[in-house]
């Protein structure tokens, strides 16, 4: 037999090492963090393994995961969307207001369309007008949340609600697995499909080197616009989960999803300057953040110091992710 067919143990170790160093290390860190938070939860939270608790963890993580996957696509293309949480808010109030007059599915379609349209505006501002993404999307976040306030003013009497079927279904299980967990799987699958498209290959190229991709004929402007459209669409999906989770919409909800989504993708090993990483790590990062929250609930610290511990845990997770990525010789 030739040596190629029977790789020695040494070779295997070497392969594993190069696999880790080829950008898998950050994801490995995220997985390790996930394991640690999971074990900590198992040890500390006595009713962690109850069906109810597992269901609610998955139910709560979906909006975050969906927004964070969308944010990841944008960040991979060297952008960032500080308005993505407000897009989710806008699309949720649009959807819930249209359920009564149009029916559920058409309402969701319009909701999706509104999310994609917001993303399109962001994309045009960043890629065509060439505003700096951080400030441009900060500016549009005012527009989206203003529109959300307009569509559904807070304190509206008889605020529209989602049909019970949706709310019930979101909390139910199929084959013993919570529906929300299936949805998380669906989000992961959607990323795996997306990753294999020409668009995402171009997104990685643009994120890696904008000028070089332009010079080699990648339609940089179109690719950048599309990342924001994809991001907006994921935000709309997140809004459906928010609606299903609470039954009604709130013109102020969703705002802090933006910042958590960025934390999730950094913990998941995506480089903020674009071009490296992926949404698989982001989903794990989102789970880590959710498990940290659940751990904190279980620890029952005095309410005054709860927020402080929460903040410190997040920084700790970010620091671990940062330390690993610096081993690769800078970001």
């Amino acid at each position: 037999m030739s040596p190629e067919q029977t790789p020695s143990t040494l070779q295997l170790v070497r392969d594993a090492r190069s696999w880790l160093l080829r950008g898998r290390l950050p994801v490995a860190t995220a997985v390790a963090l996930l394991m640690v938070t999971l074990v900590a939860n198992l040890l500390i939270a006595e009713n962690f393994l109850t069906a109810f608790n597992i269901r609610s963890i998955f139910a709560n993580v979906i909006p975050l995961a969906a927004v964070a996957v969308g944010q990841t696509v944008i960040v991979l293309g060297r952008g960032i969307d500080l308005s993505i949480g407000t897009i989710a808010t806008l699309s949720s109030v649009v959807t819930v207001s249209l359920v009564e007059p149009l029916g559920l599915l058409p309402a969701m379609l319009v909701g999706l369309g509104s999310g994609a349209a917001c993303g399109l505006v962001n994309g045009l501002l960043v890629a065509v007008v060439r505003l700096q993404p951080i400030v441009a999307t900060f500016a549009t976040s005012f527009v989206w949340s203003g529109l959300a306030l307009y569509v559904l003013p807070p304190g509206t009497a008889a605020a529209p609600r989602m049909p019970d079927v949706v709310v019930q279904g979101y909390r139910n299980s199929i084959l013993g697995v919570p529906n929300a967990a299936w949805l998380l799987l669906l989000i992961a699958l959607s990323w795996l499909v997306l990753k294999r498209t020409a668009l995402l290959r171009h997104v990685y190229a643009v994120g890696g080197d904008e000028q070089a991709s332009y010079a080699t004929g990648v339609r940089v402007v179109r690719v950048q616009i599309m990342t924001y459209v994809v991001g907006g669409t994921y935000a709309a999906f997140a809004s459906f989960a928010m609606l299903a989770n609470s039954g009604s919409a709130d013109a102020l909800a969703g705002g802090n999803l933006t910042l958590v989504s960025i934390a999730a993708l950094v913990i998941g090993g995506t480089r903020l300057s674009g071009g490296a990483g992926g949404a698989g790590g982001t989903i794990i990062g989102g789970m880590v953040l959710q498990l940290l929250t659940s751990l904190l609930v279980a620890l029952r610290p005095p309410t005054d110091i709860r927020q402080l511990i929460d903040g410190l845990l997040v920084i700790f997770a970010l620091a671990l992710a940062g330390l690993w990525s610096s081993r690769r010789g800078g970001r």
């Binding site: 934390a263 903020l272 903040g311 920084i315 620091a319 992710a321 940062g322 330390l323 970001r331």
Partner: peptide, 10 residues
């Protein structure tokens, strides 16, 4: 070596 955006956000 945490990116400034997320460090200050955290």
């Amino acid at each position: 070596r945490i990116p400034p955006l997320v460090m200050t956000l955290g």
